[in-house]
Structure formats: structure tokens, C-alpha cells
Design a protein around this nucleic acid. Structure first.
Lengths: 253, 253
DNA sequence: CGCCCGGATTGATCGACGTCAAGCAGAACG
DNA sequence: CGTTCTGCTTGACGTCGATCAATCCGGGCG
């Protein structure tokens, strides 16, 4: 993280939303300077989580929304039998906790995958400000929307795509989000384990491992443990296409 | 429908939420008489949809929420390649369109699976009333919550359950919702085709057909085209258990 | 009644992915 | 430096569910 091409001034980040490098990607996006200061008043001192620590646990009472400043987290649900389903991975500039908005209780657990720093927005204060700033309200709705749409895509992936397409879509999504962060979209650092990736994709770890190897052999990726370089974005994008579409084009399975 | 054990007085239903047999299951649940009248003022004349007709289409501008009074609908998304993923089935007393709340655009299509009658709640009016009635606002949030939780369950099912467990969970869910409607939970009438069921479960139609046959042979169900009787709710519930749990109990796969 | 047509069922076969098992590599630790 | 542990990779094999194909059944229609 610390030797990447983008050097982040942590002190600057600490000061305010207005000064935060992420503010165009986050809840404040699209609101004006004055409103931004108003929002700032609701942001509590940020928290830092070490790898493996929980930001909130499934069933916890809902108190605040969170925004990732640096690092990354995973969210997952656990059923009565202790089986886990990973729901998503959360990168800097992305919001956590909106699924609890509706029920005053977190329906999932959020766990840091590496040392991460997080803004906390206590909801009672946020709610009041949202009531006063329609633009912020709209942005909050847009942010919730993003979650719903993501859930739908995840469902379509689980229901209709084959293993290789799933991994391709996953990598493409990570690359897109890297690009949003002005990072090199061609050089990914996977903070999640192969187990988490497999679980998220509805596969087992051996299958994911084999797919990485196969895509490396095909010259699409260069894989070295947690670091993945995308050598052929065009081929990767092709693999994201649906199985049915590939069949229609007369390609091999 | 018309020869079922529950005879519904359509004229009574038409009059108002207060007189509607479903109002304890629907958006008005938990709000008081006066508030109910206020809500009534926002409910536009109900619409009737014939089988195969669309209530709204993926991408449509969002104008209103809908509640199913009678009949049933399916919701689905369609990707660029025309592949369909069925997201859910909507029964009387259940709400449609909340996923569009957040984005002012419907992210899915809703299609009637049989002749259905539907309440329409224009959103501008509803929004105003929700602003005045905190109890209604809470109930609206609760209803959105139900959708999020349902999406999560659907995801877990797709990611972790085997074919037979998926069908069992599906039937169990239908039975539970029948019970909520004070219908006989042991006698289901499937308004959706085998294709829709299969798609919803992330399977193909042949697999679903075979599973029905197998569960009938096991004495769990009595299946006759669209009518399904649950003969052994206990065994059905067992099949809903996770594969891992079954393995832990030392059962056969 | 015979015919057709779409949905559903059933069987035979195939293949993608899971399971089981072995081996490997990097990190942590003494 | 070796040991151990954990996460990852690779191979061999089995199986669940998809695919392909035939048939059945009920409904609509001439």
C-alpha cells in the first residue's frame, strides 16, 4: 500500500470531507461547499481497524454509516448452520452499513481484510442533516441504489454465469473500482484470500486457483500471490460476456 | 382462484385500505385509523393486469409503488445478451417497486403470472404523507428491509445450496406466505411455470421437474401440474437444511 | 374426433466443478 | 537455520446438474 504510485497525505485526509481526496466518490459527491461543512460536523473521528477486526457484526444495532478511507473490508452473512456467504468487498470511497438503514439492525458482518481507516457518520446527526439538505438526501438514496443494483448483479452472476465468467467479472469490477480511485487498473492487489473470492463467487478455492492459473497460461493475467496484473484487458472483457452469448458467437466453451 | 376456500369480497376490497382484507400485511400495517384514511387518499384506483402483461419494465421511470391485491407477479432483470434472471415472485399483500425508490428508475421488470389486481400508490403523494406520518415512514422502511433481506437469502441460496435444497426452500417460502394470507399452506397453486421456478433457483427446467418427481416419490409432495400438496412438512423442512449441516449429521447427499 | 402446440416429464449422456489428497511456498517463530 | 503453520496450487477422480433427445399430457381448434 505505502509504496504504490499514489501517495496519500493522511494528515490532509483527517481534516475534513472538503479536503479528503475521496470526497468526489463518497457521500459528499455532488453537494456544495457550504453543505460539505455541514456534513463535516457529523463525521466523527475516524476509526482504524486491524486485519480481521469487525466494524460491525450481523445483528448489531444500527448507529452509524461508515465510509472506507483506506484499506478494504468484506461483508458477509452467516446462517444458522454457520455457513458463510461473502456478499461484497468494500474499497476506499465506498459506503458501509446502508443495508441496516431500513431495519435499525445490521443484516451482515463487516470485517477488515487489512489495516483500514474508516469515517464514522452517526446516523441521528446524519438524518437531521439529510432532512435539511435535499441534495445530500438524493446522494444518500443514490448510494443505497448502488447497493441494490450490485446485489442484483451478484444474483445474476450466481444464477447464470460459469466459473470463468464469474472470476472475470470479479476482476473487471475490481479494476473498474481501482480506476475510479485513480489507481492503476491494470495492477490489482487482492487484499482478500482465495477462500473469500471463491465464496463470493459461489465456487470452491481450488476452482478459483485453477482459473487464475488458466487465465495466466492464456496470457490474460500475470498472477503472483496477491498481486494480479491484467495483461490483456480486451480478453478479460470478452470472458465477462455471458456463456449464452459466447455460444451464439460459436466459441468454444 | 375462484373456487378456493377463501372467498374474497372484491367490492369490499375496492373501498379502502381500512376495509381491505390485506391491510395488516401491507404498507398500512401498524398505523392507526386516522392515518389509514390519510393513506387512502393516496391510493389510486387499482389496476388489473392479464397474464403476461407488464406492470413496469426495467428502465422505466419510477412513479408509484404497487401492492398486489390478488393474483401474482414475477420480477426479473434482463442483461445485454437478453438472458433473464428471475428475482422473485410477488403475492397478495406484498409490495412492488421499492427497488426503484432509490434511483427513480425501475431496475427490473414486473410481469403478471395470472390475472392480477393491483393498488397503485403514486409516489409524490406517498412521499408527502410519509413525511407527515412517522409510523408510515417506519413501515415503509421495514418493507424495503424485507426486500434487502430476501435478496440476501436468495444470494445465499444461489451460492451455497444444492438443487434439492433450493426447491425445498422455495416451496417452504411459498407455503409460509400462503399461511400469512390465511390460505392452506399445505396446498399450493403454482402460478409460475417450471421455467420460471428453474430460472429463479439458478437451475434448468429438467432438474426442477426431476426434483418434483423425486420429492413426490419420497412421499413429501403430491404434485399435479400446477397444484402441489405438501404431505410431509417435516421432511420438507429437513431438506431446507444446509448441505453442510446434512453432511455433519451423516446423511446421504 | 384428430391434430397440433407448448409445457412438463423422463431417460441417456456429458462435462464442469466439487471433493479428496498431495505437495509447495512464504510467514512467523524459536 | 529448521520447524511449523497457513494459504495456495496442482492432480486424480467422482458426481451433480446441464444438455440433448424422446415422449407425454392437456388444451385449443378445425
Amino acid at each position: 500500500m505505502e509504496n504504490g504510485p499514489v501517495v496519500v497525505d493522511i494528515e490532509q485526509l483527517r481534516r475534513s470531507c472538503g479536503a479528503c481526496a475521496l470526497h468526489e466518490l463518497c457521500l459528499p459527491a455532488g453537494i456544495d461547499r457550504n453543505e460539505l461543512e455541514r456534513l463535516d460536523s457529523a463525521v466523527r473521528d475516524k476509526r482504524t481497524l486491524d486485519r480481521g477486526k469487525l466494524l460491525f457484526r450481523q445483528g448489531d444495532a444500527f448507529n452509524a454509516l461508515y465510509v472506507v478511507r483506506s484499506g478494504s473490508l468484506k461483508t458477509f452473512v452467516e446462517n444458522a448452520d454457520g455457513e458463510v456467504q461473502v456478499l461484497g468487498f468494500v474499497l476506499p470511497g465506498e459506503i458501509l452499513g446502508v443495508a441496516a438503514l431500513v431495519n435499525d439492525r445490521h443484516p451482515m458482518t463487516a470485517e477488515a481484510m487489512e489495516r483500514s481507516s474508516i469515517c464514522e457518520l452517526p446516523y441521528t446527526q446524519l438524518q437531521q442533516i439529510v432532512g435539511e439538505l435535499p441534495a445530500l438526501h438524493r446522494q444518500l438514496m443514490r448510494v443505497i441504489s448502488r447497493e441494490v443494483v450490485a446485489d442484483n448483479s451478484h444474483l445474476v452472476m450466481m444464477g447464470r454465469q460459469h466459473a470463468q465468467e464469474r472470476l472475470a467479472i470479479f476482476l473487471q469490477s475490481l479494476a473498474d473500482r481501482h480506476a475510479r480511485l485513480s489507481r492503476d487498473a491494470g495492477a490489482l492487489t487482492l487484499s482478500m484470500s482465495r477462500y473469500d473470492i471463491a465464496n463470493y463467487l459461489g465456487l470452491v478455492v481450488e476452482t478459483v486457483s485453477r482459473l487464475f492459473s488458466r487465465m495466466e497460461a492464456a496470457g490474460i493475467l500475470a498472477v503472483n500471490r496477491k498481486s494480479v496484473r491484467i495483461l490483456r484487458p480486451d480478453l478479460l472483457a470478452q470472458l465477462c460476456g455471458s456463456h449464452a452469448a459466447a455460444a451464439r458467437r460459436g466459441e468454444a466453451g
